[in-house]
Design a protein around this nucleic acid. Structure first.
Lengths: 348, 348
DNA sequence: TTGTAAGCGTTATCAA
DNA sequence: TTGATAACGCTTACAA
């Protein structure tokens, strides 16, 4: 008998539970118990097992565990294309941190919108390989009539609401935030406002536009007369909005944007043609991305608690997975703040 | 016998392979074959099976498949903290698109650096739940002496090289790119240059600084005399670099930055104190992020083929997983281009 | 071409 | 407290 008796490990690959059992002189059941419910095993036995585990560098096979336990501890996080943008990474960090803390792993969906990927993800969902879904978009993948929603696993939405169905959601008070944006410009004396929208029919979009219109109406202005440009949150669409703006007569003096990127793209274009922000045009962004503090001028914007939005969504899902009853109409609201910087000023 | 005979599906959850077999009047083996090797089954039988599959909405259980087949088709992509930045999402898109095309799913590591998460990921790797690893960072998670590198699954690095070990890598010609940056400033007549570094000892960093020094030396300038500020790629560290710059006498007139974010942060600070870019200082960035075209002034920078870098890395890994022999010293080089914009100009 | 049956590695039930 | 053993749902020799 050699001092170092590693011979119990088969040459082919990693140690299995049987190897550990043999090395520790116990049954596989005891090994499993030691690892899952240490308190149900006598301290002495436990020590033997743990020693063997360490000696053999044993890690339980996850597939077998999932198969037997019926839970994978994997969560799908479905994000829109806007991923490239500066907003979502913050939300994802919040989600990821919470999930990791509770032993879950995140799988990201929809970096692009390829059918391949959607199909694979739907398969994984129906294959029982995913325990839950977090949606950061109202658009839910469905192929051949099979929608992720029908897999019967818990779903939580963040910054979005499903169209046809209810699901617990974490939301920003978008409407109030748009009121803050709009009122800020009105307070500075602006009367001709323009609205640079995000993607139409988005949850965010609908609520923000409502806030914009409401605030104008309250000030005795007709929202219908306020020019509205349909952007898609990107720098490029903000630039396009600005080019549309330049053709308007008379030109608005205050711009409400649905993302910081659009605001920055907007500023770039008007600056290039010799206009000045905020001298000629005041602009309010939305999101509070880091660049907002580094562009010229710095951006007045609505700051969103990105990590918090993600974290509460993740916690909600984890609760649901732990069997806690979560009503489908649960709504957790977070608040955005107006942060006044240099891109807005009183009208001349 | 009712026309719609769904009774074969048990009340408890989803259909299993046995249900399909029963519904189609064949054995489970035939169902499995039909799904995996359709050509090995008689067309007529195949049709019966596929009909049953559709009728029962059957999706094979992934855990069972993984357990049996020994491959999960899941890939871990390990990214640095710099994730929040604008550079990585482009690389990730490239990776994700390729992986999806080949039926692989991406799991993202290290959004933050929590020990929880690292532990879970290392477990998954050793638990055989991950088929391969793509590293976008030289830093490989290891806890308690157990490193991901030792799990015996294929690893590919992108924009990085491992410290202690070789692995196939996809790289940018960083040194050449730094030469382009530096030479561009020299060509414009700048003689006092400053170098704003990324995180020290990074693969990128080492090569870029080498290119910087080499180019100065070739022009008869002493690299040692060029101020060097150690940043971390972020906007904030670019701003800090600028504050350091402001204390220098005489001040450099040309700045070589290792990221666009740092360049933009730098410009912000010097603009705020009344200096002008490029009139007083010329600045070259690195990465070619989208914001580089929207800041003021637009940024002269090195454009990196982000999606391509990701895609080749993914393809390399997929090849390795398909059993293709990939030498550990494989190096796939991509080229960055100098894109001249408005942040650099001839010295007065 | 199809069916039978033996695993894949774990966990949970039941008995000892 | 521990051990034997039957699942979990699928794939794949091997046999028919």
């Amino acid at each position: 008998m050699t001092p170092a008796q590693d011979n119990s490990t088969p040459l082919t690959g990693a140690a299995r539970i049987g190897d550990v059992a043999r090395a520790a002189g116990v049954s596989t059941a005891t090994v499993s118990r030691t690892l899952t419910y240490p308190e149900r095993v006598r301290a002495e036995t436990r020590q033997k097992v743990l020693d063997a585990v360490r000696r053999l560098d044993y890690t339980p096979n996850e597939a077998a565990r999932v198969l037997r336990a019926g839970a994978s501890r994997m969560i799908l996080v479905q994000i829109p294309h806007r991923f490239g943008g500066a907003f979502f990474p913050g939300v994802l960090s919040g989600i990821d941190e919470q999930l990791a803390k509770h032993g879950y792993t995140m799988i990201m969906g929809s970096l692009d919108d390829s059918e391949n990927k959607a199909r694979r993800l739907i398969d994984l969902v129906f294959a029982g390989q995913l325990d839950g879904i977090i949606l950061l978009t109202g658009h839910v993948p469905a192929i051949g009539g099979r929608s992720m929603l029908d897999a019967g696993i818990p779903i939580v939405s963040i910054c979005a609401e499903l169209r046809d169905r209810q699901s617990p959601s974490v939301l920003l008070n978008d409407e109030d935030c748009a009121v803050l944006q709009t009122q800020h410009l009105l307070d500075l004396g602006h009367r001709r406002l323009m609205y640079v929208a995000g993607i139409p029919n988005n949850y965010n979009e609908v609520h923000r536009y409502r806030g914009f219109c409401k605030t104008l109406a309250k000030a005795g202005l007709d929202p219908i007369e306020a020019p509205r440009y349909e952007g898609d949150y990107t720098l490029a669409s903000g630039a396009a909005a600005a080019r549309a703006f330049l053709t308007l007569k008379p030109r608005p003096t205050g711009i409400v944007c649905c993302s910081d990127e659009m605001a920055i793209g907007f500023i770039k274009v008007i600056t290039d043609v010799g206009l000045s922000c905020p001298r000629d045009v005041s602009i309010v962004g939305f999101d509070g991305i880091e660049f907002a503090d580094y562009c010229e001028p710095t951006l007045t914007t609505i700051w969103q608690p990105r990590a918090e939005l993600g974290a509460s969504g993740a916690r909600l899902l984890i609760d649901a997975l732990s069997g806690k009853p979560i009503a489908a109409d649960t709504r957790i609201m977070h608040r955005g703040d107006l942060r006044v910087r240099a891109s807005t000023s009183p009208i001349w």
